[in-house]
Design a protein around this nucleic acid. Structure first.
Lengths: 114, 114
DNA sequence: AATTATACCTCGATTATCTAGGTATATTAT
DNA sequence: ATAATATACCTAGATAATCGAGGTATAATT
């Protein structure tokens, strides 16, 4: 079992929206960006990403449009909406609280006992 | 959908072993401790905890023994083994790398673009 | 005496991710 | 030219972690 797989669970939406907050991006690119920016710590799979993008589009957190690459290949770009930015803020806040609490328990474990 | 539920996924073992590294503890107590120490951020359910404890015992990361409470109720205490401490170190390292990379992407999203 | 809290447990449902397929087009290698 | 690889999208079924809801048993409270 890859250990990261489960840690990733729950933060994928946060990561995707974070990427999109920096500019429009297409799916394949997001996978490469996450891989690169995390130094290969997480590898989001296509089977995970595309359904999530469709879900985000359904709830109007992102919109999409097609654009051809210079070489002529079709790409589907995603753009974060105002609603998506609000969602991002929520996810960010959640993540910050969560990671803070985990750190508190992990680092405080030795000193918290009598 | 409770948002924490999925963030929690993957860090439960880390949290449990962290608690046990501070001293022996019984299941019901762990749930209360996690709730208290995280300021109600995560609530580990019994249906989640007990199977994990049994799994950790199977892989010799913890041992268990029964002890009666002052009032006479039976409690099953868990004790972290040397192997469990090694596992804890691994999980800690994983968590640190993971949370660091998430933070990098979340906070760097705006500035990383051209 | 009945209800609530403590303390353990398990099974089936839910949900997120992955694996493994599929389609189509462009690039690179032979 | 042709085959193989890389890009780019997609979905369905398998896998895995958590939860919900139940169960048992005993102590404390009402």
């Amino acid at each position: 079992m890859k250990p990261d797989k489960n840690l990733l669970s729950g933060s994928t939406t946060l990561l995707i929206l974070s990427l999109l907050s920096g500019g429009d991006m297409y799916g394949y690119e997001m996978i490469a960006q996450l891989e690169a920016r995390s130094d290969h710590t997480f590898t989001l799979r296509e089977g995970t990403l595309y359904p999530i993008l469709h879900g985000l589009e359904n709830k109007k957190a992102v919109t999409s449009y097609e654009k051809e690459s210079p070489s002529g290949r079709k790409r589907k770009y995603y753009h974060i909406t105002r609603k998506g930015l609000r969602l991002l803020d929520e996810k960010k806040a959640e993540w910050q609280v969560f990671s803070e609490k985990v750190n508190a328990i992990v680092t405080g474990a030795a000193g918290a006992m009598a």
